[in-house]
Every structure is written in C-alpha cells, then in structure tokens.
Nucleic acid binder design. Structure first.
Lengths: 250, 250
DNA sequence: CCTTAATATTGATTTTAATCAAAACCGGAT
DNA sequence: ATCCGGTTTTGATTAAAATCAATATTAAGG
C-alpha cells in the first residue's frame, strides 16, 4: 500500500522546492536528543540577531555555509538564478521557520535567500553548531537525516505537482500557506500573502497571468475571496477538494 | 554567480526523480574512507546475489530498509503508486548502478523497484552495513550526505524540467541514457531502451503519445534514428543543443 | 508459422497554459 | 492629494500537450 508520505492529501505544495521551510528550531533539535533547556540555550544564548531589509539577502548561492537561520519576523523567499538570468523561486519562509539547511550536504548555499519584507532572523553560527556537536555527536548526522527526509518529501511532492493543473497548484499552495499560518498562531482562513503573483508563478511553474486567472477562478467559485495580496478562504473543504482532484483525474 | 550544480548543462534529466541512479558502489564507498580492498570486500564477500524476473519486485514501497542493491545485469525502474492506482516512474537503473538509498532517511522504502527485464543484483544487507559502520563510523553519515547531495541535485533538476518542452525533456532523457551507457562501457550513440513510451512519459511528466511524437520529431530533424526501442544518436551536439535551448528561451 | 495482446505511431480535436496587449489598481514618494 | 512605477486583472490570440481514435508494428506463446 501507498505509504502516508506519498498520499497527495498529506502533502503541501509549498514544501516543493523549499528546504526545510516548515521545520522549526525546536522541531529540529528535540529529536536529536536536545532537551527543552538545550533548545532554549540554542535559541536564546548562542544566537545572533540579525535584521534584513526588504530586498536584502540573508545568504547567497555559492557562499560558504556559516550558519542556520531561524526566522523571527518577516517573510523571505529562496530562489536560484538560472543561466539566462531569470530567477526561479524555490520556497517561501515565514516567522518561526528555519533556513540554511540547503547548504548542509555541500557546505555551500544552493540558493539565495531574499527578504520579501523587513525581517529579523536569529543566526546560529556553524561554529556554535560544531560546539554542540561535540556534546551531542549525533547532531550533524541528524541534520543530514532531517534534510534527506524533508527533501525526499519535496521530491515526492514535485512528482504530484507535475500532473497538476494551474488551479490545483494554486489550491495546494494556498492550503500550505494556510496550514503554516495556522501553526504560527495566525488565522488559517484569512491572511496576507507577501509575494507577488510572479513569485507564486515562478514557484508553481506557472506564468503570473495564469496565477491571476486561477485566483479569479477560485473566487468565482466562491472558494476564496481575494483582494490583491489579501486572501480569505471561504470554503476550506472545497479548496482541499480542488487540490485532491488532480491526482484522481485521468 | 550560478554554481555549477544549477547549470542546465551539467544536469541530466534522468537524475530527476531517481534516487542515486548513477552512483556506483565504488563511488559511494571510496569517499567514506573505504580503500579499494574494503570496497572489494563489500562487493565480493558480503554480498548476496539475487535474481529478479522481468516484472518482479526488488523492493516495495513501505517495506523496511534491509539492504542496498548494486545492479549486476538487467534493467530496473523505480516508481511510486499514486492513490488512484496509477504508477509514476521515478527512475531507471542499469547495470553498475546502486539502488535502495531511497530508504536511508526513513528506514522505509519510498518507492517500488521493478525489473524491466530479467536482472541480477548484489544485495548488501543492512546488517553488514552496520558491521562496517562499527569499523568505519562515518559510513551511515556519509550515506546520508550522499543521499542529500544526490537528491538536492535532482531537486534542482526538476526545477529545470518544469520549464522544458516535450522535445527538450526527451532530449535530456536520451542524453542521460547515452552518458550512463557510455560509463558502463556500451555505445554512447547506439543503444536499446528497455522501457516503454508510457514509462518514459510517466518519468518525464508527459503522455505516451507526446513522447512518441517527440521521438518522431527528433528523427525528422535527423538528430536521432529510432526504431521502436532501439535508438541511434546521429548528432550528439544538436541533441545537446535541443536540451539547452529551453532554459535559455523565453 | 500464425495468433493475440501489448506497444507504438499518427491524425483530428479539445483543453490548457503561454504569450501579447491593454486597462485597472495599489502603494509609496513628493 | 497626485503622480508614478510596479503589480494585477482581464481579454484575445497562439502554442503546446492532452485526449480521443484508428491503424500499424512488435513480441510472446501456442
């Protein structure tokens, strides 16, 4: 039987192409064997606070892996630059989420991380991680394991994305955003997106006009209410159905 | 600047959705610190030989990770079953390549491995891997690292695939097959594919008719000569151009 | 060898999304 | 408030691939 991991219902499109977008520092460290106290230490003592202005870079592709980052406030995107200069968005990252694990296997960042609005992050320097590794030898190993798991998950998801239509992709995206806002304590059905239609399109493999049309279509069907960047989900169930349909069709 | 890893020229589409398809046992073990002799030991002594008939399963989704497999002869595909029962091909695996690393992060196989023709594999039981891990503690860690690297690579590739047209996808696929045949000592320009058009389509995110048409088109353009499963590449350079065009277009 | 089922090709049509183009809208700066 | 650049929406057209359908080819088994 199909394992849970590969059921479309259990996937969020936003995981696609993102690296550990939804993995909090706590989620990351507790399974390693760090206790609450140690996680606190990581979060409160070791960490350097950093501010990044809208449009500023947290890290650049190809630069050395020097730290993990926990987003404290704001909103960031990760993206890769293709050879022709176009950029492809690989993920969105909101407060409470972790960034930087993309570099864990190569020691080099594989994407740019750009602030979509003024943001604050906590930097956990690699040197500190190494210190912890000495006390908790399995830490880096565990990071690799987490990374593989996350990325295998993404991988499976992209398979599904491949067979989805524009509207279904957008539905998946919105549901993922919804879930992540909910986790962070915001409304599940009423939120502001910080990225442009173009960025959503890049992320989902669609053109901005197609994204816009998909928004309009979902609004027409009274599943959501859109006003520019503000989205209100009117019918969560039907939105989930939208997403599920694709892999059942054909 | 764009790192090598994200340049389309350095990618093979066949890496997409596959797990360590092109990573040989030797390639895998040498960087861990295993010397030639130890690799031989792995390959020659520890290993159980196994035969799988055409259509037979090497491993099933959701089953426990018990061994790595090195393909000795034959041809296999890996695939996941979607909830509606359709299967999605995630990779092809030829003699000399390694299988089973998909399970490394979860201890469960995340896909089925099916023989496309009668095949022989060498099984490296997990228990033996653990034995080696005791002598070489970094082994499993290293496997994780390899796995992350491979899969991050795939990940980047799928980004590219997303913006490719049918013909370009097929070109990438053929080039990858070509390269892998070459590595294993077969002709780079003249080979038999073992999979059906439908399987290629599933792998590339296209319908079988579209794959067939793309084959015909490449033949029309005198870039390849196709006869059913047999492919002869007439103009490698132009085939490479076909592939490169996509990410430069727009 | 012939039969049959699976596979592959090709054509016609429809669906989907990209592209081109114009207008409407919004947010920040003055 | 007004202007302006960037963003969003919507429409018309084109291009690509899916779908439907028919035929041709191949491989496997009797």
């Amino acid at each position: 039987m199909l394992p849970e991991r590969f059921s479309a219902k259990n996937f969020d499109v936003a995981h696609i192409r993102s690296s550990c977008a939804t993995c909090s520092l706590r989620e990351l460290c507790l399974p390693v064997g760090l206790n609450e106290e140690e996680v606190e230490t990581l979060g409160e003592v070791i960490v350097n606070k950093k501010k990044i202005q809208r449009g500023g870079y947290l890290h650049r592709t190809g630069t050395k892996f020097q730290a993990l980052y926990a987003v404290k406030s704001g909103f960031l995107k990760t993206c890769v630059l293709e050879e022709d200069g176009r950029q492809q968005v690989t993920g969105f990252h909101m407060a409470g989420e972790l960034l930087g694990l993309d570099a864990i296997s190569t020691d080099m960042h594989t994407c740019d991380a750009v602030a979509l609005e003024d943001s604050e992050v906590c930097e956990i320097p690699f040197s500190k991680l190494e210190d912890i590794s000495r006390t908790i030898p399995s830490l880096m190993h565990h990071f690799h394991k987490i990374m593989s798991r996350e990325i295998v998950r993404d991988h499976g998801l992209m398979l599904l994305l491949g067979s989805m239509k524009a509207e279904e992709r957008l539905a998946s995206f919105l549901l993922n955003m919804s879930r992540r806002f909910a986790i962070r304590g915001y409304s599940e059905t009423d939120f502001n997106l910080r990225m442009t239609r173009e960025e959503i399109g890049s992320y989902l493999g669609l053109k901005l006009e197609t994204v816009s049309r998909a928004f309009s279509k979902l609004q027409e069907d009274a599943i959501i209410a859109v006003n520019n960047k503000h989205v209100k989900i009117l019918n969560l169930e039907r939105l989930k159905l939208k997403m599920g349909n694709s892999s059942c069709a054909t």
